[in-house]
């Protein structure tokens, strides 16, 4: 990498860099310059923001019928695969994303990042379940699922989250929780309770300001479980959910 690009040249190619349309070698030289020039980093950061806002102007559009369900099924399938394979890098189904990614400079111009873990699969599955239960379409496939609304422990009242569990195999459980009253920060443990009083520790995840979303593969028959609990590290039960059996029905469009 020659690093020959100076500030003046960077100002010339910055817009194309920010939009991700520079050729590979031009981009490499520009990024090399950004590594050592804070002013140009800021310049490109602003241009990248302009590019994001430009894309943000694109109009929303109604997706095809059944889109939510297909997304949910895709995520569920991936949940099983990823847990079953314990992450097989580079293995993904054929599609547009298999090609080289666009050389956006976002990462290059941003320093250390604070990663905030957000799991989306629970929402996605919930979308499918809610829709299908509300108004079942013509079905071709039906799958069992365990669902439950989370309520604050001991206080009842408004729902603070959702639990979805796919009996499997492979079984998996997703939890989405927003404990708006507690602002709890830190690790919590999710337990699945059986009617006989025994429990399975499904796993741990972290809440930030009372919010967290998490999923994990769970061995065994999940229909044996009747409830889920979230417990803080000091043993306080934060929220509970009674699990009910339901069916996810999907129409193959």
């Amino acid at each position: 990498m020659s690093g020959d690009v100076d500030c003046e040249q960077l100002r010339e190619i910055g817009p194309e860099l920010a939009l991700g349309v520079l050729s590979g070698w031009e981009r490499a030289e520009a990024v090399a310059h950004l590594d050592r020039c804070a002013d140009c980093r800021e310049y490109v950061r602003q241009l990248t923001q302009v590019g994001d806002r430009l894309v943000g102007l694109l109009p929303d559009r109604e997706p095809p019928p059944g889109f939510e369900t297909r997304v949910a099924r895709g995520l569920a399938r991936r949940a099983g695969v990823s847990e079953g394979q314990r992450r097989a890098p580079g293995r993904s189904r054929p599609g547009p994303h298999r090609g080289a990614r666009r050389p956006r400079v976002r990462v290059a111009v941003v320093g250390a990042t604070l990663a905030v873990a957000v799991g989306f699969a629970g929402w996605a599955i919930g979308t499918a379940v809610e829709e299908v239960v509300a108004s079942p379409p013509a079905t071709e496939q039906s799958e069992p699922v365990m669902v439950g609304d989370m309520t604050p422990a001991g206080r009842g009242g408004q729902d603070v989250g959702e639990v979805y569990a796919h009996p499997g195999p492979p079984g998996w459980v997703f939890v989405s929780v927003a404990l708006t009253g507690s602002r709890h920060d830190g690790p919590v443990t999710c337990y699945l309770d059986r009617p006989d009083g025994t429990s399975l520790r499904a796993g741990d995840f972290t809440l930030r300001d009372g919010h967290g979303n998490w999923g994990v593969a769970v061995p065994g028959d999940l229909t044996r479980y009747s409830a889920a609990r979230l417990v803080s590290s000091d043993g306080t039960v934060l929220a509970t959910a009674q699990l009910q059996k339901a069916q996810v029905t999907t129409s193959q469009a």
Binding site: G74, L114, V116, A124
Partner: peptide, 25 residues
């Protein structure tokens, strides 16, 4: 093609949720 892309968007978001940085947008 748009539906394929949209579906992959949600799948990618899920797979890479841990790198979402709320400070950046």
């Amino acid at each position: 093609l748009a539906e394929d892309v949209a579906q992959q968007t949600f799948e990618r978001a899920w797979r890479h949720a841990q790198i979402y940085d709320s400070r950046r947008g």
